Each structure stands twice: as C-alpha cells, then as structure tokens.
Amino acid sequence: MSIHNAAQQLRQAIRSGQHKGNTSGLAGGHVQCNLMILPEDWAMEFMGFCHQNPKPCPLIAMSEPGSPLLPALGSDLDVRTDVPSYRVFENGEQVAAVDNLMDHWRDDLVVFAIGCSFSFEEALLAAGLEIRNIAEGKNVPMYQTDIACAGSGRLHGNMVVSMRPFAAADAIRAIQISSRFPSVHGAPVHLGNPQLIGIDDIALPDYGDAVTVGQDELPLFWGCGVTPQSIVQSSRPPFCISHGPGDMLVTDLLNSQLAVL
C-alpha cells in the first residue's frame, strides 16, 4: 500500500466496518485528527476556544455549516462514516456511542478537525524512540487534569492529556522532536509527577489503556484532543458529537507538511 492511498484505503475499511478500534500507528505518514461537531450557534465560540488553547486543541480544519465534508483533508472524506466510533452528547451527557452518524447528522452542524498526537508519534518512532502504547498494542492512556483551559464564551473546563513514558535521555529527545509539530499538540505540557496536574493514579487512565511505566522512566504528558469532550461535560451544549478516544479521522494530509523546521 503506497503512502498516497494508505489513508483512503483505511477510511474505506472504517466506512465498511472492516476496521474497528483505535488508529494509532496506522496509515503511516498521514495526519490523524480528533473531531468535535457542534451546532452552528456554538461554532464561533469553539473556534475561539481552539485559538485560545492551541496545545490541547490545535485546529486543522473546519467545515461549512451542515457539511460533513472536509475537502482540504481528503476529497472522498465524509466525517459521518470515516471514524471508527463516535460519541453523541446532549446537555453534556453522553447519550450514544455509534459507528456512524447517518442517524444523527443535522443541517446546522459544524465539524472541527483537531490535530492529534498520533501524528508526532511517527516522528518519535523514526528517531528510534519506543512509543509504549504502540509497543504494547494498546490505545494511548489519557487523563483528566486540573489544568484549566482558557474560556471562550460559554465554553470552559480542564485539559485532558495523553501520556508516553521515556527514560530521561529519550524524554529530552521526545520533547525536542514533538516541539517541531505545534499543529499536533507540540511539546509536552508537563513531565514527571502526575499528581502535580491532578492525576491521582497513572495506572488508571480516564480514557484509553494503562501502559507500563518503568521505575527509571519519566511520564511525559501532552495536551490531548479529547479535551473538547471534557469541555462539553463542563459547558453542557445542548448537542454535540465527538470521536471515540483513540479512534481518529485519518486524512490525506501528510505529517511532513506540519513539521516546523
């Protein structure tokens, strides 16, 4: 499978139900995105939220109201069918988990595609660093923190982070590499003691799977695109849709296009 059609073929496999589950490590070379889908009357506030909080919510693209298409990210891409799982929220509470949005789509919805750390994982792997969740065949662990995001209109709440452990020397290299990718979360927001950002037990992630953390390793925490789901629960918009954690929208955009030299 060539790099030019790997993303399209993966989307087709997701659309047909042949692929289910997280997309970490798949369609190498391609940008993966988190999704947040909101009614038009909340869209400007969410765009402002992304601009105010670029670490957890680096905005890659947004749709026209009512359109499930993001042509800049893939000519055949349809956000209603091309993500392995979705979560539907009403008034801040999850009311459904579905594998397509055909029964939930509305003509006032605006799609936001947010950069995902799976994109910089590829650069870390290329540098010879081990990504623990990939090595263990798991979804990346994600945690609710007490780090407050900057508010935007009615939107407020705390940041969610993803975690990857490294030995000290490798942690320095991981920070250097990920800082070159600000549009997919950039450098970590914290390293070391998880309790300093409100995480009581690193073995009990709020989303994703726990991974092994060695006694000689530092946990590194990156801003995570699941943050909007935390914001939804705090701000309680009447209706919205997100991706399932770890189940991303895989685009035709290349990771190399996002790197800052």
Rank of each mutant, 00 (worst) to 15 (best):
I202Q: 06
H30R: 15
F239G: 06
I60Q: 14
Q176W: 10
G128K: 03
S2P: 13
L73K: 15
Q215C: 11
Q12R: 13
A6G: 02
N139V: 05
G128D: 02
D206H: 15
H30S: 14
M142Y: 03
I172T: 11
S242M: 11
P228H: 00
Q176D: 13
I37E: 03
A150M: 12
S2V: 03
L70T: 04
Q8W: 09
E136V: 02
A174K: 00
Y86T: 06
H4A: 10
V184N: 09
S242F: 09
D76K: 14
P58F: 07
L218D: 01
V260A: 08
G28C: 11
D201S: 06
V184A: 12
G186T: 09
N100S: 13
V160A: 04
P68N: 15
P205R: 00
Q94Y: 05
I175F: 08
Q12C: 12
H19A: 02
R236F: 07
D247M: 11
L59A: 04
G198N: 10
M36A: 14
N158R: 09
H4M: 09
V260S: 05
V95N: 00
I175K: 13
Y86E: 05
T212Q: 15
F120H: 10
S67H: 12
S63Y: 05
V110W: 13
H19K: 08
L70E: 04
L218P: 01
N34P: 08
Y143H: 10
A61W: 11
A27L: 01
P68Q: 14
S2I: 06
L73T: 10
V161N: 00
E90H: 04
L220E: 00
L253P: 02
K20I: 13
S178N: 08
D201N: 12
G66E: 13
F49R: 03
